[in-house]
Amino acid sequence: MTSEPAHMNPARSFQGLILTLQRYWAEQGCVILQPYDMEMGAGTFHPATTLRALGPKPWRAAYVQPSRRPKDGRYGENPNRLQHYYQFQVILKPNPPNLQELYLGSLEAIGIDTAVHDIRFVEDDWESPTLGAWGLGWECWCDGMEVSQFTYFQQVAGFECAPVAGELTYGLERLAMYLQGVESIYDLNFNGQDGDRKVTYAQVFLQAEQEYSRHNFEVADTEMLFRHFRDAEAACRKYLEAGEPKDGSNDSRHLMALPAYDQCIKASHMFNLLDARGVISVTERQSYILRVRELAKACGAAWLKTEGGGVAA
């Protein structure tokens, strides 16, 4: 770490924080993936977590995932809330027995010294109704601030996880704010440079927050979104159907689990946008969540019939 240039120091550089976490988890044998190329509400939706958590095959991955929460937009005026932010996601299946120690190691790596910081594991049970998933774990506190979510997946897409995967989610902006000692997300130093070369989070994302807040709350074409929801739902079903193993074939594998799951992700995001536009009533809300969950469950079932899901080739 001593050889690290100052602009890579997580205490002053947002990207330095990301790169440090990536390097740390790479050391633990994780594949370092790039963000999934679709809009999603949380890093958990990435197939590298949702689908890979299912089935018997070992899996270790870490990646940054931009997370879209249309409802959390504040037109760039709130120093703590964004409709687009970064999560750093780690999944280890099965969870190693020392996952808590590995996690604490990652905090040390980004400069959180446990001799002066009060780290706590506070009960927090995680549940995603749209993914039909739940797990037990904690919010990890550093000096009273939640810096990560730590979950042992018990069920995903309605299926028991066997074996159980450990999932870590770091809220990168919030963590960086603490490390850099700034009061507003927009004041974060993105690239760790000084003077003319310094790029702030505001320079990168403020305009986007303003524009997307307008889009999410005021302008997004609801008729189109409803249509896209229905289209994605239909496409998901269609691909699942098309990928089913053929009668009489020796090959019992499903052939289209991943493309089908993309449509499930899409439907979920369409729902989030519609929800932000306030066009889904309370009673309808539940039924939309249920529809996405049905897709997720069907995709999970299909995945379990693929090689990645544990079926021999």
Partner: peptide, 11 residues
């Protein structure tokens, strides 16, 4: 509320 974990949870 209880949970399973680790390699043993495969069974």
């Amino acid at each position: 509320k209880s949970m399973r974990w680790g390699a043993a949870s495969a069974e």
